[in-house]
Each structure stands twice: as C-alpha cells, then as structure tokens.
Amino acid sequence: MADLPTLRLMQGLAQRITATHPELVNSDASFGELAWNWGRTRGEGESRLWFSDGELVAWGRAELPRRVRRTDGSVKDITGAYLAYQVHPGHAELVDEVIAWFEATAPGVSRTVLPAAADTFGLRRWAAHGYEPDAPDAWSQLNERELADVAEPSLPAGFSFRTAAEVSPEAVVQAHVDAWAPTSYSLSSYLGVRQAPGYRGDLHVLVEAPDGTMACSAIMWLDEVNATVEFEPVGTHPGFRRLGLARAMLRHGMRLAAAAGARHATVACMGEPEPARELYYGVGFRAFSRDAPLIKAN
C-alpha cells in the first residue's frame, strides 16, 4: 500500500518526466491520475519503489484480484492483476526489475499493464517477458491544449457553475455516482481524494441543474511545477447529457485553471471513437499520446 509520502515521491517523478519526456507518462502515472487513484482507493495494492542516489527513479503498484462492492448493490470479482508503473527514461533498464517484481507479486493469474506507446524500449522488454497486445479497444488517449484564448462558457438557462468548496461532500459524491454508476466510489473515497496532494476544492467544478441536481462534474489537478492542469475524472448525469453542460464546464474549468497559473491542460479518454473524444476535440484538445495495453495470460 502506498502511503502519502510515497505518493508525493511518485508525483515528483511524474513531474520530472513530464518536464522532459511527456510522451512517456502513461495514463496511470501522471501527477493528477496518481492523486485521483490514490485518493479513491487510499493507496490499496502492493507497491515497490526503486531509488538512485536517494532519488526515486521507478515505481510499481500492483492491483491484485479482489471483490468490489458497488453503489447499486452489485459485486464485481476482479480475477486478474493490473500494474501501474513508471520508470525514468534515464534508468530504463529498471523495467526488467519492475516486470520481475510484478510477476512475483501476482503469480498464477492473468496480468495486464498499460505502458506508453512511445516507450519503444519498454515495449520490447515487456514483449521479451511474454506480454502481448490486449483487446484493441482497451487503450486510452491523452489529449492536450494550451490555455490561451479559451472561449467563454455558456450554460442553458437555469443551470449554474459550482465548485466542491461551495456544496456538500454528499452532493459532490452523488454527482460522480450518477455519472459513473455502477461504481465503488463513496463518501470515504471522496474524503481520500481531498487528502491527495494537488486536490483543490476551488478547482473541482460542477454544474447545478435548476432542480438542484449536480448534473456534471470534473476535478482539475494543477501541477504547478509544469504549469499544467489535468481533468480527471469528467462525468455527466445521464439525464442531463447532450445539453452542452460538459462543454461549458470544461471551458469554465480551463479559465479557472489559467487564473490559478496553468498554461496547459490535458484530459484522457478511451482511444476508440466515442462521444468523450469528440467532446474534448470540440473544446480545443488534440491527441498527444496513447497507451499500449498488454496482457500475459496464465
């Protein structure tokens, strides 16, 4: 399990790689994604760190088979293991140690991992250990844009922008649950997210409907070192989709982020054609990098 000091070290590595090799930051290793995943799960799973001269240069976090209870009362059994990891390009040879650790930590089950598609050295090493491309629709895409000239947001009549600092924690959680049901996200998950380094209630934006429902929400994670902000997650209540709420919220959020010092923004989506990707393109984002999902079945 990764504790808070460990998370800060992992985020520091993400910031260093973002500054020099942003294309190598795979989807679970960005500054914001690390905070989001740690907060909602309280760092559950098995972790390992690698240091060089006292500085973190690689890490791995293995999510092992488990049973997950969701908000609709259902139970999901996860039978495989998944690895989130990051290796500094100056210590690329450590990927073999990461792979060996993962296989020793999760023996006898199928194992999946999402290295960056631009990490040609890493991909060769995973292949050498028997990992093959996973399902073709399992990859995710990172999108980016600069924060100059963000269009003014426009909401339908009766809707208004809010932040998590202005509404109750219960309303914030319900906004996520409504958008992503069924989900294991809970009030406890949100309280963990609020403890994660980089979380700011004034950069957690929502759209309130005329009836008081939080119809849309997004958390923005501000990496002050690189003056970049990451949207994660972004979701809309199914009863309020196709009204332009997410488009307006993203523009509103980007303006807030720019006022907080960000010059650049990112957001991830699944790589296969889907409405989310077109939404992000519609507010000025463009594809930047992608993951290359791999699997080794037993």
Rank of each mutant, 00 (worst) to 15 (best):
S47Y: 15
W221V: 10
V234H: 12
F51G: 02
D211R: 01
V225M: 10
A148V: 12
P22T: 05
M249Y: 14
G158K: 00
V193W: 09
G239T: 00
L256R: 04
P293A: 08
A135C: 09
V57F: 14
A181N: 06
F31R: 06
Y199Q: 03
R145I: 11
A116G: 05
P133D: 13
D134H: 11
W59Q: 06
V98E: 02
G32T: 00
E46K: 11
E230N: 13
L203F: 13
A35P: 00
A106C: 09
A84C: 08
G198Q: 00
L7K: 00
G80F: 10
L279K: 06
T112N: 15
A171C: 10
P5S: 13
D53H: 05
V150M: 04
K76E: 15
A164S: 15
F240Y: 13
G261N: 08
G261Y: 12
R125Q: 02
K296G: 04
Q195A: 13
A265W: 10
A276Y: 04
R194K: 08
T18Y: 15
A58F: 06
T163F: 15
T236C: 03
E274K: 12
N298K: 15
R124F: 15
P89F: 06
F31K: 01
R111D: 03
W180N: 13
H264Y: 05
T18R: 07
A151R: 08
